[in-house]
């Protein structure tokens, strides 16, 4: 009698486990299906198309060409310039945004509680869509009507209006400034969360040990923030590698190719030159780079947590 009840219990446990697995699959299936259709399928299809000569304007000449698109990519100077621009853009936007976000977070954290509402105000640039920011700054940087030129001239920094968006070195600078303005609140928010998680005891101990403000930051605050800084900056590296709207609206990748980043170049190849095969090859290469960066990100997370 006892044996059979054990059997029943075992069977019941198995059924419960099986049922929970089945339930999990049922819950996950729609999401996996949707992700598969809208993300995985286009990715695989783009990788497939990258081995084809596929120009929309020449439908009769569509043919398998193995690695021809990739070998063209290796020789394509614009592609390498776009790659360089992407790295420059990503590096400076992440470093500057992080630095400013850190300062903002620290300053607001130190202010009396009644000023903490400022965080909400500083968050505004983060919630404005990229396209809107692009147009806003495009007019601010305009050579003719730009308010920036006017202000700089009034305070004596420049003598005549500068064509910010139409000079090679200034255009990249302008889009980096714009992007940093948009992105800094994100870092501020993440670092504020990190600051709030620092145990009060640690601060009190440093105070009792006679540490000054710099020492407190160097030996208490910063070590606690390190992980959140790594996570947020890696996240933004991935995001900025793919960033499109601000650059597209402000400069369209110009002057010439001075601000053409990889995603902008892919867009131009696909929708201005209609060369889907080559655009897919560049896109596939770009996905591989992003997968490597993402893998580093995940590895870092695993190591630290």
């Amino acid at each position: 009698m006892q044996v059979s009840s054990e059997k029943i219990e075992r069977k019941g446990r198995w059924l419960r486990n099986a049922s929970s697995t089945f339930t999990a699959i049922r819950f996950l299936a729609p999401a996996i299906l949707v992700m598969g259709v809208i993300i995985l399928f286009p990715l695989i299809n783009a990788a497939r198309l990258s081995f084809f000569n596929y120009e929309l304007t020449k439908p009769k000449e569509i043919a398998f060409n193995l690695f021809k698109n990739y070998s063209y990519m290796v020789k394509d100077k614009i592609f390498w310039q776009a790659l360089k621009n992407t790295v420059v853009f990503t590096f400076f936007t992440v470093v500057s945004g992080l630095f400013l976000g850190l300062i903002l977070a620290l300053v607001i954290y130190e202010l009396p509680r009644r000023f903490h509402g400022l965080r909400g105000v500083f968050l505004v640039p983060w919630v404005i869509p990229g396209i809107v920011i692009g147009y806003l700054f495009m007019y601010m940087f305009d050579v003719e009507i730009g308010v920036l030129n006017y202000v700089l001239q009034q305070i004596g920094v420049i003598k005549e209006f500068l064509p910010w968006l139409m000079r090679n070195n200034l255009a990249m600078f302008a889009i980096i400034i714009t992007h940093v303005w948009n992105q800094t609140p994100f870092y501020m928010l993440m670092i504020t969360a990190g600051l709030m998680a620092i145990p009060e005891e640690a601060r009190e101990a440093s105070y009792l040990e006679g540490a000054n403000r710099w020492q407190e930051f160097r030996y208490i605050t910063f070590p606690y923030l390190q992980e959140i800084i790594v996570i947020s900056s890696l996240l933004m590296v991935i995001r900025n590698f793919n960033f499109f709207p601000i650059i597209f609206t402000m400069t369209g990748g110009g002057p010439a190719y001075a601000t053409t980043t990889a995603v902008l170049y892919i867009y131009r190849l696909a929708f201005e030159r209609f060369d889907i095969g080559y655009a897919s090859a560049v896109g596939t290469f770009w996905v591989i780079i992003l997968i490597i960066v993402s893998a580093l990100y995940i590895r870092t997370l695993k190591e630290r947590f």
Binding site: P163, Y257, R268
Partner: peptide, 12 residues
């Protein structure tokens, strides 16, 4: 498109 990029290179 490369030609117009060239024009921009010349003027900037």
């Amino acid at each position: 498109i490369p030609f117009m990029a060239g024009v921009q290179e010349v003027i900037t």
